[in-house]
Computed example of a mutant assay.
Amino acid sequence: METNNILRLFDDFIVAPGFNRSDISKWFNTNKHKGINRGVYAILNYKLEILYIGSSIDLQKRLPHHLYQGKLNGYFQEVLLIGIKYVEGDVTVLERKYIRELKPKLNKYRYDY
C-alpha cells in the first residue's frame, strides 16, 4: 500500500523519534480534550513503513509499555511516528484487519485467516 494511503488510515499521529516516552506523554497531555483513548495504533519508521500494529482500550497507558517489552527491541531508533485510529467498539477487529492488510514487520501473528 502506498504511503499516502497508509497515512489516511489514521486519525492522529504522535511524532516520537526514537519512541521517546516524554514525546508520547506530552502528546496525550496536550490532546486530552479529544476524549477518546481507545483504538488501533501503528508504529512507523523514518521511511513511513509500519513496524508494528497494536490496539488498546487505553492507548495512553499501553503505548509506553513497548519500552519494557521485547516487541520493539532493536528498532526504537527507527521509530518516527505513531499513528492512531480511534475506535469506539471492539478494537481487535480493526487491529486484525490492519495486520492482515498492512503486514507490519514486527507483528508475530499475522491473522492470515
Rank of each mutant, 00 (worst) to 15 (best):
Y46W: 01
N29L: 11
V40I: 11
A42Y: 02
E49Q: 03
R21H: 05
N37D: 10
A42Q: 03
A16P: 02
I36N: 14
H33P: 04
L44C: 06
N37M: 08
F19A: 04
H33N: 12
W27M: 12
Y41N: 10
D23C: 08
I50W: 01
K34D: 11
K47F: 08
K47E: 12
K47Y: 12
S22K: 13
I36R: 14
L51A: 00
L51H: 00
D23Q: 07
K26H: 10
F19K: 03
K47V: 05
F28L: 13
H33I: 09
F19D: 02
L44D: 02
I50Y: 00
K34N: 15
I43M: 12
A16H: 04
Y41D: 13
A42T: 04
L51K: 01
D23P: 02
R21T: 06
Y46Q: 02
T30F: 06
K32N: 12
K26A: 12
L51Q: 01
W27Y: 15
A42G: 14
K47R: 11
Y46P: 00
A16L: 05
Y41H: 15
R38Q: 12
L48R: 01
K26W: 10
K32C: 09
K32L: 10
A42M: 05
N20R: 15
Y52G: 00
T30Y: 06
K32R: 10
I36V: 14
K26C: 13
P17K: 02
D23R: 07
Y46S: 03
G18L: 09
R21Q: 09
K47D: 14
P17L: 02
K32Y: 09
R21F: 02
I43K: 06
T30A: 14
K26E: 13
I36Q: 15
I24V: 13
